[in-house]
Design a protein around this nucleic acid. Structure first.
Length: 720
DNA sequence: TTTTGATAACTTTTT
DNA sequence: GTTATCAAAA
């Protein structure tokens, strides 16, 4: 009975995918083909056929995808089994699944269970330390490059020793240096009791390889495994999945090679292209009916992607109506492009389209600025996703660093971050002395802090301050027992006088203080929602979170994001901007066929996000890194067989200063205390002037309460 | 020790 | 054009 109910909302192919219970299954899910629906139905179908939720694992790449799936499974379960409780499957990201495994058994491979997770910046600071110790010049050996090589190695399951052998046999200087850095870097991670993202996967495989009984436990438990976005798995994740499912072979992978856009992050498209070869008796189901887009949009996207050689044959079709043709406009420059898009959005909104139905995509984050300005001018609500993430803000990282040091006393990276924040008079020299001492004694920074008296040359004042700091840390550590995470954070902010430190910079203070408060709210929210409210769990969750996770389609604003972040989402109205040679495809991705094909997939992903209307723009001239560049329309325009449309009305309003307004600016520039008006921020008073002529900058207190630093020549100001 | 000015970098980035 | 980073000046 529940079976029929489950299957009746699905097309025949989808039904087939849902009904396949045992043995390997590959679902090629074209864009908009109801992938999430199939996955949730399949999970519930398994439960309905007496597979315990306990035995099922579904792996996604993002928290957001996992959360969405969780909600949908839950809802469907309540429909199918009203009034009864059925244990749901475990829905997890690769990384959080691995953290779970490692927290349990990592001691078997010589690590401590209480490890913390380092993000890219944490890793970079360790790399820089390694470079210094190896006397390598940061300009010759770039930390980012070294980290990239190490990351790649981990994605390929090469640990430091294996990589060293590989580097040695390949007689490649760069690799040999990288191998040396890798070794040191791993040692430092271990000394800090930390793992990076790559370690989470690699060490899980390592653990399973060296402890078959642990692997067996997981094989026995997770007899049914499903992996979403399989085209984005790297080699390590591929091996991990393979090991886990070796015994029962109930592996279902879902993906679309045409939407593989993370090869640059180590994803290996071969994993999905070769899945059939790898699993002999594997069943393949192609979902080719698109439920999302109009025929015009789908056909245009198909035309583009058909130029890729490295793909399986797949022909998407839709029963949806034809809709409007895809629009293509060529504009003079990025400013007009932004005004045009903003103007179009204004018209849509006037026609009662809600802003939440609209998205603007671009290739690079830098493109968002101009677009934001235009939307602000039109007074349209918008939200930029990505770019500077909340948890990457300085003040947020500072507070978290305090918490991390309390949880993991071995953490030198974060201890170093806060040792002089707020200012305790521990300057560069003092810090260097302590670090030198630590290096000599072969101990960590935290341990060195316990031996202040033994450090030669350290100023008495510095010693005194450090003792105070040490005492504070101890007090907070002791206070942990009686306080919740949010209370502890509040106590630290209070007692360290962190807010006072922020107030020293009047321009940034209000925003930064707001972020600190926001952090406290975030911790409180965590405490309300999470079962395990411990500080450790909070920090772990923060380490594995992304900006996209906070995005909600329900909020009524226009969404601005990169094409990469758009994957998996859909909007009624989509504007794709900057379709120019050099931007999309990006100049840095033109070298190889592989890269060019990934750019094309990126374009395809963007196009297939649109449900009703797709508008594409390209600018003849654009400012890139401060210099004007002339570009020709993207090759994808021709491939899509798009015809340029004329812009009907001039959308450019107010982008140039009128001669009248220009006259109002005094020859000598602006003066302190002068009252001025700004298009967006309104009226305000100048509180500080710096620079002169073209470079003149002013700081203004606006009546609305915000304080801004503005470049006079760019701000389009009026004298009041 | 702290502030400042010069210098280079800059594609995308689920975790 | 913006931003992070580092050496030199205050």
């Amino acid at each position: 009975m529940p079976n029929n109910k489950l299957l009746e909302h699905l097309n025949p192919k989808q039904q087939e995918a849902v009904e396949h219970i045992a043995g390997p299954l590959l679902i090629i899910a074209g864009a908009g083909s109801g992938k999430t629906r199939v996955i949730t139905y399949r999970l519930v179908y398994l439960l309905a056929n007496n597979v315990p939720g306990w035995n099922i694992l579904a792996v996604t790449f993002t928290n957001k995808a996992a959360e969405e799936m969780r909600v949908r499974v839950d809802k469907l379960l309540r429909e199918i089994f009203p009034g009864t409780y059925t244990a749901p499957p475990l829905l997890s990201t690769f990384h959080s699944f691995c953290v779970r495994v490692l927290r349990q058994d990592i001691e078997q491979i010589g690590f401590k269970r209480g490890f913390v997770i380092y993000d890219e910046n944490d890793s970079l600071s360790l790399i820089k330390q390694c470079l210094r110790e190896l006397n390598l010049d940061e300009k010759k050996t770039r930390p980012k490059e070294a980290l990239y090589i190490i990351d790649k190695a981990k994605d390929d399951l090469l640990d430091a020793e294996s990589y060293q052998i590989y580097a040695h046999t390949s007689h490649n200087d760069v690799r040999q240096i990288a191998a040396e850095i890798y070794r040191r870097y791993q040692k430092k991670l271990k000394d800090n009791n930390a793992l990076d993202f790559g370690d989470l996967i690699m060490l899980t495989v390592h653990l399973w390889r060296s402890c078959p009984e642990v692997l067996q436990r997981y094989q026995e438990r997770f007899r049914y495994v499903l992996v979403d976005e399989y085209q984005d798995t790297n080699h390590a994740q591929y091996i991990l999945t393979k090991m886990l499912t070796q015994k029962f072979q109930n592996i279902c992978v879902v993906g679309d090679e045409d939407q593989s856009i993370y090869m640059f992050r180590g994803a290996d498209i071969r994993n999905i292209l070769d899945f059939e070869k790898d699993n002999k008796n594997c069943k393949v189901i192609k979902l080719e009916q698109n439920y999302r887009s109009t025929r015009h949009i789908l056909e245009t996207a198909q035309k583009v992607i058909s130029h890729n050689k490295d793909r399986k044959s797949k022909e998407l079709w839709t029963a949806n109506k034809k809709g409007d043709p895809v629009d293509f406009y060529e504009v003079v420059n990025e400013i007009e492009e932004a005004s045009f898009v903003a103007g179009s959005i204004r018209r849509l909104v006037k026609e009662d389209v809600r802003p939440l139905e609209i998205a603007v995509f671009y290739r690079t984050n830098a493109q968002s600025r101009v677009m934001e300005d235009a939307l602000r001018r039109e007074q349209l609500p918008y939200m930029v996703i990505g770019g500077m993430r909340f948890y990457e803000r300085r003040e947020v990282k500072d507070i978290l660093a305090y918490l991390r040091v309390l949880v993991n006393p071995q953490d030198s990276v974060h201890l170093k971050r806060i040792i002089n924040v707020p200012n305790r008079g521990i300057g560069k020299t003092s810090l260097e002395m302590i670090e030198k001492y630590a290096a000599e004694q072969e101990i960590g920074l935290p341990e060195a802090l316990q031996q202040l008296d033994l450090i030669a040359g350290l100023q008495d004042r510095a010693k005194k301050n450090l003792r105070g700091f040490r005492q504070q840390l101890q007090n907070w550590s002791a206070a942990r027992i009686n306080l919740s995470t949010s209370e502890l954070a509040a106590k630290i902010i209070e007692e360290s006088h962190y807010i006072k430190e922020l107030e020293a910079d009047p321009q940034e203070a209000s925003e930064r203080i707001a972020n600190v408060k926001e952090l406290i709210s975030a911790i409180k929210e965590f405490e309300e929602q999470s079962k395990d409210k411990s500080l450790e769990t909070y920090l772990e969750q923060v380490a594995l979170i992304s900006d996209l996770d906070s995005w909600q389609q329900e909020k009524n604003y226009v969404t601005l994001m990169t094409l990469h972040l758009a994957k998996g989402l859909e909007f009624n109205y989509v504007f794709m901007t900057g379709l120019e040679e050099g931007l999309l495809p990006h100049a840095n991705s033109l070298a190889t066929q592989i890269e060019r094909e990934e750019e094309r997939r990126l374009c395809y992903v963007g196009m297939t996000r649109a449900k009703r209307r797709l508008v594409i723009t390209s600018a003849a001239e654009r400012r890139v890194n401060g210099v004007r560049r002339w570009n020709i329309p993207s090759r994808f325009i021709a491939e899509a067989e798009l015809i340029e449309r004329e812009i009907e009305k001039p959308f450019v309003e107010n982008t140039e200063m009128t001669p009248e307004a220009r006259h109002q600016i005094p020859e000598s520039g602006f003066k302190k205390n002068q009252r001025i008006g700004h298009e967006v921020f309104g009226a305000g008073r100048i509180i500080e002037v710096s620079g002169s002529g073209e470079d003149q900058k002013i700081i203004v207190d606006f009546n609305s309460g915000v304080r801004k630093k503005l470049l006079v020549k760019a701000a389009n100001l009026k004298v009041l």
